[in-house]
Design a protein around this nucleic acid. Structure first.
Length: 454
RNA sequence: GUGGUUGUAGCUCAGUUGGUUAGAGCGCUGGAUUGUGGUUCCAGAGGUCGUGGGUUCGAGCCCCAUCUACCACCCCA
């Protein structure tokens, strides 16, 4: 026990059964991404630190995993720098690479770097692990997979609609009940403008985000604490009390923040999007949620979040529109919108709800029991023929006791076992046992393949 | 990063106010059944009680540190 090896905090191993289930999720997601015309790309696990730093806010920088320079990274460091004990400055000297923190920033880098080979609008999906030096909790890992779909180079709200449709279709396929929450950064900016605190948009929205968690009073307390004047908080109250359908909410909102140009633009965008949604026969519940405040560091338009209705876990998908992400890499004016599916949390949700299909393992269908050398010689050509017919099959590699081989087949859930010994060889037949019913039948190779093909 | 909870066989958990050789169920291995698994019966193996210190005549139980998982905040998938 003491010397057992272990893996780093917040990381996991995946067993064959877990891999089968994870692939069920990935395959479902990929199939639907392709259905909407998205193409896959991959980027390296590590990026230059200069690509990553400063893209996720101050907090984000702290959560980046940094990679120590190879070779003698201490050369070139002066004694003063070492004695200074300034870890940020020191880090810059000894580390120039980091593990990717999400897929969006590397994608932006990719777009800028390959701008001449890409025909816009560019629709890509990307399914890869990302790393965050976060403190792990349930559904919260230091290494986890994101499944991103993004469209860059198009301002059309049709793209937002398409993302909502994808969300609808993915979770319908996975049989998870979800609610899609939609907000718009422009509306949030409009609110901030109307109450006269345009520069405090992040503080305001982060506080509002906690509305259903800590209640109105505490939200107001927090706003005061953050230094928002009482007068502005008073102006905010009607907005926090919006009610009714999305259309009704939008009408009330228009009265409240219609004086703000950006606010009006946000309302128009949301209205158009909900119009599209209303006409697209979705089964998923979609609602406007002004308290939604995600990714404010770079979202500029729509903000999406998807929550599972039957399980208490953080959001299982999230995304939004970012008008100028590539600007940071020297390519301004390219708008993008995308959404990310959290495969690991989706896995947890499916586990908790018992929604994984039984047959997620594409396992062996036929096992040849191994009795000895003569029998091996007889079985191997039949095994090859079975495999050539496209049937997953294998022979037990050792001449173990029959009981052991049967138990092994049973545990691997192999539905058919071929038993071939002296008697069968003499008749040039195979004794085929159905492991579910227990029935046995003497057949020849052709019949064997026929039965297994059914 | 801040504050808190937790950790006993492969798994799920018992373990009385600190007191001799730490238990159960499931699983595993072997046998009943030397060519038949999943059911049944019998037998057996497996734990330096997360790790490292300390208090004590004596620690699974008390104290400290550390790691892990989990919870809240922060942030987020």
């Amino acid at each position: 026990m003491a010397q057992k090896p272990s893996i780093p905090k917040g990381t996991r191993d995946f067993s064959p059964i877990e891999m089968a289930r994870r692939n069920y999720i990935f395959d479902t997601i990929k199939r639907i991404f392709r259905l909407y015309g998205f193409q896959p790309i991959e980027t390296p696990a590590m990026e230059n630190l200069s690509t990553l730093m400063g893209k996720y806010g101050e907090e984000g920088d702290k959560l980046l995993f940094k990679i120590l320079n190879s070779g003698d990274f201490m050369t070139g460091l002066s004694d003063e720098e070492l004695l200074e004990r300034n870890s940020i400055r020191l880090t810059n000297k000894i580390s120039e690479k980091g593990l990717r923190y999400d897929l969006t920033v590397p994608f932006a880098r990719f777009v800028v770097q390959h701008r001449n080979e890409i025909s816009f609008p560019f629709k890509r999906y990307q399914i890869q692990p990302v790393w965050r030096a976060d403190r792990p909790q349930k559904g919260r890992y230091r290494e986890f997979y994101q499944c991103d779909v993004d469209i860059v180079g198009s301002d059309s709200l049709l793209n937002e609609l398409e993302l909502v449709q994808i969300v609808d279709q993915v979770f319908r396929n996975l049989k998870i009940n979800v609610v899609v929450k939609i907000n718009n950064r422009k509306i949030l900016a409009g609110i901030a403008e109307v109450i006269g605190e345009i520069d405090r948009i992040v503080d305001i929205t982060v506080a509002i985000d906690k509305l259903d968690k800590i209640g109105l009073e505490k939200v107001n307390d927090e706003l005061l604490e953050k230094g928002i004047p009482q007068e502005a908080i008073d102006k905010l109250q009607p907005i926090l009390h919006l009610s009714g359908t999305t259309i009704e909410k939008l009408a009330q909102l228009e009265l409240a923040i219609g004086s703000s140009e950006i606010g009006r633009k946000g309302i128009d965008e949301v209205r158009t999007l909900f119009d599209y949604i209303a006409g697209s026969n979705l089964q998923t519940e979609v609602e406007l949620d002004l308290t939604l405040a995600r990714g404010l560091n770079y979202y500029t338009g729509a903000i999406f979040e998807v929550k599972a209705k039957d399980v208490q876990i953080g959001s299982i998908s999230g995304g939004g529109r970012y008008d100028d992400l590539t600007g940071i890499f020297g390519m301004p004016g390219v708008s993008g919108v995308g959404i990310s599916f959290g495969a690991d949390r989706i896995y947890d949700v499916l586990t908790q709800l018992g929604l994984f299909p039984e047959e997620t393992v594409d396992s062996t269908r036929l096992l040849f029991v191994n009795f000895g050398e003569k029998e091996e010689k007889y079985c191997l050509p039949v095994l090859t023929a079975v495999r050539n017919a496209g049937i997953n099959a294998e022979i037990y590699p050792d001449q173990a006791k029959m009981k052991k081989q049967m138990t092994w087949a049973d545990q691997k859930k192999i539905p058919f076992v071929a038993i071939v010994g002296e008697e069968e060889m003499a008749q040039n037949k195979i004794n085929l046992k159905n492991m579910v019913s227990g029935e046995q039948k003497l057949v020849d190779a052709q019949e064997l393949i026929k039965i297994l093909s059914e």
